[in-house]
Amino acid sequence: MAMEMEVRDVSQKKETTQFLTIVQAVNDGMKTLLETDDSVMILGEDIGKNGGVFRATEGLQEKFGADRVVDTPLAEAGIIGTSIGLAVNGFKPIAEIQFLGFIYPAYEQIMTHVSRIRMRTMGHFTVPMVIRAPYGAGIRSPEIHSDSTETLFTHMPGIKVVCPSTPYDAKGLLIAAMEDPDPVIMLEPMKSYRAKREEVPTGKYTVEIGKGKKVKEGTDVTLIAWGAMMTVVEKAAEQAEKKGISCEIIDLRTLYPIDRDIIAESVQKTGRAVIVHEAQLTGGLGNDIVSIINDTSFLHLRAPIERVTGFDVPVPFFALEEDFLPTPARVLEGIEKVVHF
């Protein structure tokens, strides 16, 4: 009897997970939301019949209808602007911006309305919505398709910004974002969209917004990154281990509000930090993280904090994008610099 139960449990467990890439997990997250909440709608360019340029919405219009999974006109401000009207009037839009580099026409709508409507009406009107956008360089995209402008949004009070690096987190953060009473921008690392697969639960679960994740324990230096840079950081850490340097790795996952505790706890242990992001150095999120370490862990530091980032140049045409992006070798140099300070 007991044996039978155990066998059934195992088979049930097998049925309740799927082996998915990040982009498949995003798709599964939207499917779960559409299935469980009739007010959820998806809006975007080419997301219906075509299933999205990255296939993130593949099969969803067929399953849920063109009223809920909507091919919109080619207009980012229109997508976000109408999502605002839908959201104040009871619907829960998930707006896809095809590439983060094309979000700028919608910036005014996000900055002056999405982020402010709660504050402007003291909570009378709110716009719970999710804005999804693939971001980042490294897949030989045409120019402008590879931007990583997360700080344009972390600088904007009233919205939250998440950036998953794994299939599990992608689905869990997407569902958490849609359930959040405030608008959330989810930046999806397009370089990692199909890079790895992992077990992702079927059905509904959430990953808490505002919480980072310790990916690896270590003692000598804390590496802090998110999104597509996680792979770079993990490779650098492997090489550092070979040189006898023990790295602790933190995947920030949420870029606003940042998990200050996980940063402080780790840096207070290691005394050293290397922050890695592909966005430009000046005005980059690394500076906020340096400030958090300064505020929480100043007396624990054994070396100045190192930032390994993109340069203060526009994201280049793809012939030079590998020179723009932080590499494991550059991160390793940063690690050695802080360890041997």
Binding site: A77, G78, I80, G81, T82, S83, I84, G85, L86, A87, V88, N89, G90, F91, Q109, H113
Partner: peptide
């Protein structure tokens, strides 16, 4: 104007 379109759409 897009807000009005969205609210009416809803």
């Amino acid at each position: 104007l897009p807000h009005a379109a969205g609210a009416a759409w809803a």
